[in-house]
Write a protein that binds this DNA or RNA. Structure first.
Length: 366
DNA sequence: AACCCGGGGCC
DNA sequence: GGCCCAGGGTT
């Protein structure tokens, strides 16, 4: 940390703050969560923005705020409705934790989002970034909010060569931002850093020529802006073969399954499916056995309708899709029978939305 | 410290 | 196809 301190000692911190904040106040984008400083709105936006781009978040944020405009609304909302509002955003534990935390605020803080680091950081799903971001933006408290954007910007400003993929590296950047941050306008400072990372100091082609803080940038001075930040590579995803069944009965009902409350895609709904293995049995036979022995339904399956590929960060699903007609259901089935109308209210992962889209394109088959 | 947890858009 | 994104929780 000593070398970082020496770099900071050589910086014109007041000038950097001024140039950054001045630029941010002029050039900031109009975004729905910037309409006011309502801590609940800021909080929801920060959770949605975790690992998710601004353009993706905007429509979700607007719909979410229409449905759950206050802490009380979200605290008392039906969990399935909340999941449905998050459908397609990914990282679904974010919204499960958010609702749990908002319930805590409703019950223990009279619905007022706490304004101290100690209290706010204890809430579910609130880590060092989110607590710093919400407390600075909504309550104007001078805490660092170090995300990927900020690590990229600061690694260039100070010419820091530590691997930002390593967890402990974030401490170096929190130390640096803690010394750089404006005590007068911490909200504008933090948002300015992130805005700069999004608009100017981008990963592969930083626009240094028009950067408002280019005269403060060590990487530019050294000509190494394209080499920073240093980030080690992640391993490639592994592939899994799956088979899934879109099942109807003669009354037109669908049969769906709720995923477990932990792990991948927790609490979301899906068409019954299993991981298939190469061997003597065909995929269709494995799926038939699974439906009968595990899922608790007997069904006649058609031929392979098609395949879906879905890529996660660490995983690839190759799903063979079959359509089928349910002939009998056991009492202890793990499937839920729903009408096609009711089906619309259940939150499905995108992979299974793709399967449903296949079914809608072949209505004669089902 | 390493791994898990989604999805989309850009190059 | 690889990389990145306004990260946090679990082990």
């Amino acid at each position: 940390m000593k070398d970082i301190q020496e770099k900071l000692d050589r910086k014109d911190i007041a000038g950097f703050q001024h140039d950054l904040i001045d630029w941010y106040e002029k050039e900031q984008r109009t975004l729905p969560w910037r309409e006011n400083q309502d801590p609940y709105r800021v909080w929801v936006s920060e959770v949605m923005l975790q690992q998710t781009r601004v353009d993706t978040v905007i429509p979700y944020f607007n719909r979410f705020m229409e449905q759950f405009p206050t802490v009380k609304d979200l605290a008392l909302a039906d969990e399935e409705k909340v999941m449905k509002a998050w459908e397609g955003l990914g990282y679904y534990s974010r919204v499960r934790n958010l609702q749990a935390a908002v319930k805590e605020v409703y019950e223990s803080y009279e619905g007022v989002v706490p304004d101290t680091k100690e209290q706010f950081s204890k809430l579910k799903g609130v880590g060092p970034y989110t607590s710093g971001a919400v407390l600075s933006i909504a309550y104007n408290k001078p805490y660092p909010a170090v995300d990927g954007n900020v690590m990229r910007v600061i690694s260039r400003i100070l010419s820091i060569w530590d691997d930002i993929a390593k967890p402990k590296t974030r401490n170096i950047f929190e130390f640096a931002v803690d010394q750089l941050i404006s005590r007068e306008k911490p909200s504008e400072f933090n948002q300015g850093l992130m805005e700069l990372g999004a608009l100017i100091c981008t990963p592969t082609s930083p626009a240094c020529l028009i950067c408002p803080v280019n005269m403060h940038c060590s990487a530019l001075e050294e000509g190494v802006q394209h080499e920073l930040p240093v980030k080690s590579k992640k391993k490639k995803p592994t592939a899994k073969s799956m088979a899934a069944a879109v099942l109807f009965d003669d009354a037109g009902n669908l049969y769906i399954h709720k995923r477990p409350s932990t792990g991948l895609l927790a609490n979301l709904w899906e068409f019954p499916n299993l991981e298939t293995i190469k061997g003597r049995k065909t995929e269709k036979e494995q799926l038939m056995d699974f439906l009968k022995e595990e899922a608790g339904v007997q069904a006649e399956l058609g031929d392979l309708e098609g395949t879906i590929q879905h890529v996660f960060t660490h995983l690839i699903w190759n799903i063979s899709v079959f359509f089928g007609r349910v002939t009998s259901v056991s009492d202890d089935t793990m499937l839920k029978k729903v009408t096609t109308e009711e089906f619309e209210a259940y939150a499905l992962p995108v992979s299974h939305q793709k399967i449903w889209k296949m079914a809608l394109e072949e209505p004669s088959r089902i």
